[in-house]
Design a protein around this nucleic acid. Structure first.
Lengths: 228, 228
DNA sequence: AATGTTTGATAGTATTGCTATCTTTATAGC
DNA sequence: GCTATAAAGATAGCAATACTATCAAACATT
C-alpha cells in the first residue's frame, strides 16, 4: 500500500498549489465530494466555498475556474493509476502478467489503499467515470493540450500501449487499443449503472472482477499474434 | 440516397415539435451550426436567437433548455445512422457484409447524401463526436433514461449487437462490443484531430476508410468463433 | 369578421462566473 | 516579542446566463 505519495501535477493547472496549504487540501477534498453529489454542471465555487466555510474568492485563488479544477482532479487520478501500475509491475517480467495488472488498476484503482487522506479515491473514480471526458471535450482542447494539461492521461495510455507492444510487437493498433481500453472501462461501469442495455456487464457490490475479465478477453484476443 | 425522411423522435424532448414550423426548422438548422462554432458550453439560446433573428423566448417555446436540445440533435443523428444501416443491409444476407455496412455508417454517416435540408449531417457528426456523450453524462441520466431519451442510441447499439450475435451466437459480449465500437469511432476521430498520441489513426481529407478498417479489424478479430 | 395560434418585444429575477479591494489572521524571520 | 509578509475572510460589484411572464402584433383558419 502506498502512503504519503504526493504527485507533481502540471503547475499551470492551478494558481496556487492546493497541496501546499490546509485550505488547498480542503478544496480538493470537498470538491471531489461535492462534484460527486451535485454533478459537474451544478457544482460551483460558491457552493464549494459554503461547504468548506470559506469564500468564493478564496477558492478562486487556487483555481482559475471549475474546468481547470476538473482537469486537475482527473489528472491526479490518472497519475495515481499510473503509479499503481508502475509499482505493481515493478519486478514482473511476463508481459501478459503486466497487462493483467494494468487492467486491474485501470478498472478499479481505488481497490488499493488510499494514498492521501484528503483524496477519496473511490469517489474520485466515480467522478472520472461520470465527468472525466468533459475535461478534454471542450473548444479549448487544442490550446490546453499544448499547455500539457492532458499529459497524465496520455502517459497512462502510452504505458498501456508499451505493454501491448511487448506482448506483440507487430500489433498495428497499440495506441488505439490502449485508449479504447481506458475509455471502455469507464463507459462500461457507467452503462452498467445507468444504461444497462448498453453493456453485458453486471456490477454487484463494487466488484469489478467481471469487468477486468471482460477487458482481458478483449485485450488478449486482439493482441494475439496474427495468424496471417 | 434518402430524400424527405422525417424522424419521429421522442416528443418529450421538446415543447413544440421543431419539425412542424419554419421557426422550428431554423432553430434546428442554426443550433447545429452554432454549437459546432462555439462549443456546447458557450452556446446559449440568446445567441441562437440573435443568429436567427428571433428572440430567446421564442426558442424556449420549442426546447426547455439547451441540454434537451442536445439530446434531440444527438438522437436525430443516431436515428439517421440506424436508418442508413437498415436501408443499407436490407437485402444483404451475409452477416459479415452486414457488419461492414454497419461500421461504415457508424464511422461516417454523412458520407451519404443528406436526408433533410435543414440538418447539416456533416456538422452534426462533428457535434456528436465532440459533445455527444454530454447528452447522458449528467446527474439526471436515470430520470431521463426512464423518459426514453436515449432510446435511439440504445436501439442503434442493439442493432449492432444483433449483427454480432448473428455472426457468432456464442460471443459473450455482444452489447459491450456494440457500445464500445460506437464510442470508439467517435473517440478515435476526436483523438486523431485533437490528441493524436491517443490513437494510431490519421485522418486526411475527411477520409474515414482507415478508421472503418481498424474497427473491422477489432470487431472481426473479437467475434471470430472462439477456439476454446 | 371572429378566432386561435405563433411569434416578437420587452421586462424582470435568481444564479453563475468571475474581479477588485480591504481587513483580519496566521506564520516566519529576526 | 516585533515586524514583515503571505494567506484567508468579508464584502461589493458586474456582466452573462438561464430562465419566466406578460402583452401586443402578425398570421392563418373557418
Amino acid at each position: 500500500m502506498a502512503v504519503g505519495v504526493r504527485f507533481q501535477l502540471n503547475d499551470r493547472l492551478f494558481l496556487r498549489d492546493p497541496q501546499s496549504t490546509a485550505l488547498g487540501c480542503r478544496i480538493i477534498h470537498h470538491s471531489i465530494l461535492l462534484i460527486d453529489e451535485l454533478g459537474f454542471e451544478a457544482f460551483t465555487f460558491k457552493k464549494l466555498a459554503e461547504r468548506i466555510n470559506s469564500t468564493e474568492a478564496s477558492v478562486y485563488r487556487y483555481f482559475e475556474n471549475k474546468h481547470l479544477l476538473l482537469i486537475y482532479l482527473v489528472s491526479w487520478y490518472w497519475e495515481w493509476v499510473g503509479y499503481l501500475i508502475d509499482t505493481g509491475t515493478m519486478n514482473v517480467e511476463d508481459p501478459s502478467r503486466k497487462l493483467k495488472i494494468a487492467i486491474e488498476n485501470i478498472v478499479d484503482a481505488s481497490r488499493e489503499n488510499p494514498a492521501i487522506e484528503y483524496v477519496n479515491e473511490h469517489v474520485l473514480h466515480r467522478i472520472v467515470i461520470a465527468e472525466g471526458t468533459k475535461a478534454y471535450h471542450t473548444k479549448q482542447v487544442d490550446e490546453e493540450n499544448k499547455e500539457g494539461f492532458f499529459l497524465d492521461y496520455k502517459r497512462l495510455a502510452e504505458k498501456l500501449a508499451a505493454i501491448i507492444r511487448e506482448l506483440n510487437p507487430s500489433f498495428p493498433y497499440a495506441r488505439t487499443l490502449a485508449s479504447t481500453l481506458i475509455e471502455m472501462s469507464n463507459n462500461q461501469i457507467y452503462f452498467a449503472e445507468h444504461l444497462p442495455r448498453l453493456t453485458d456487464l453486471k456490477i454487484k457490490d463494487q466488484n469489478y472482477r467481471e469487468l477486468a475479465e471482460m477487458m482481458e478477453f478483449f485485450a488478449f484476443r486482439l493482441i494475439a499474434a496474427a495468424e496471417d
